[in-house]
Write a protein that binds this DNA or RNA. Structure first.
Lengths: 139, 139
DNA sequence: TCCTAACTTGGACTTTGTCTAAGTCAACAC
DNA sequence: GTGTTGACTTAGACAAAGTCCAAGTTAGGA
C-alpha cells in the first residue's frame, strides 16, 4: 500500500490527497468496485473529491498496470486492485458477484497458430459464468 | 436466414418488417456490430425504423439464443450472429477488430472444483488480446 | 518562499441504453 | 375479404456511465 504510493511517486506522480484516497480505497477492500463505488468511498474520507478526479486516477492506475479494468457485463467497468497476480474471474449470473479464480494451465496455449490470423497475441481474459451458492438455492 | 425467421415464427414471434430487417442485417455480415451500427444498416432498408425497436429486437434475439452479446470493452455491446457454433473472440488492442476463434479443449476443464467456491459453473468466455497484422506494422 | 506545471473541480456534454404513452398492424376468426 | 385485438413500433424523454473543458488550486523543485 505504501509500496503502491511509493511506486507511483517513483514514476513521477504528484502525490495529492485525492490520489492517496483513491489508492487507499482500492487497497482497502479486495473487491471489484465500480468507479462510482470508488467515488462514494473516497467521499467518505475526502468529501470534496470530484467524480472527474476519481475517473482520472483510476485511468492512470490502469495505465500504470497497478489496477485492472474488468468489464464482465455491459454495465459499469469494475476495478480490480489484484493486478500483480495473474487470475481470471468467476461471475454469478444471478447477483453479479465476482470472485478471483486461478485456472490451471496457460490459456494462450489453447489457441493454435492457425487460429491466430497473424495477430500477435499477448493475453487472454476468461470470464467463467455460473450461479453462486446463494443464487443456486434461491427463490 | 429464412430458417431463422421461421424458427422465430415457430416461437410465437409476430413477423414484422422491422424484425425481418434486423435479422437480415445480422445475417448479412458476419461481423460484430454494435446496436447503433445495426440500426444504421437497418435504416438503409427501412428508413423509419426506430432505435428502440432495434434494441428491443436485439434483446429478444439474445434471449432466444439466436444472437450472442459480446462485451469486449467497456463501450457498446456487440452482437454476434454466430450463436450456434461455440467459439471465443480475439480482439485487436489497437483498432478493436474482432475475430471468432476456436481454441482447443474445454475451458471449463481448467477450473478445478477447489476454485469454484460452490458456484454451479455453466460456461466460460475467453477474450484473447493482441495486435492484428495491420496494427503490428506501426502507425 | 515563490513559481509553475501538474492536478482538481464543477458542470456541460456525449454515448449507450431504457422507458412510456399513443398509434399501428400481423395474424387469427369469421 | 373484413373486423378485431393484443402485440409491436414510434418519438422523444429519461437515465447511467463516462469524457471534456476552462478556471482555480497546489505539490514539489528552485
Amino acid at each position: 500500500m505504501n509500496d503502491l504510493l511509493e511506486r507511483l511517486r517513483g514514476r513521477g506522480w504528484r502525490l495529492t490527497s485525492q490520489r492517496r484516497v483513491v489508492a487507499e480505497v482500492l487497497d482497502g477492500e479486495h473487491v471489484h468496485l465500480t468507479a462510482d463505488e470508488v467515488h462514494a468511498r473516497a467521499v467518505e474520507r475526502l468529501p470534496e473529491i470530484s467524480r472527474a478526479t476519481v475517473y482520472n486516477t483510476l485511468g492512470e492506475l490502469v495505465c500504470l498496470g497497478e489496477v485492472l479494468e474488468v468489464a464482465t457485463d455491459g454495465r459499469a467497468k469494475r476495478y480490480d486492485p489484484n493486478a500483480h497476480h495473474a487470475h481470471q474471474h468467476l461471475v454469478c449470473s444471478g447477483c453479479g458477484a465476482i470472485r478471483d479464480v486461478h485456472p490451471q494451465g496457460d490459456p494462450l496455449a489453447a489457441l493454435p497458430a492457425s487460429e491466430r490470423f497473424g495477430f500477435v497475441v499477448s493475453g487472454a481474459e476468461i470470464t467463467y459464468r455460473g450461479l453462486c451458492p446463494d443464487c443456486t438455492t434461491g427463490p
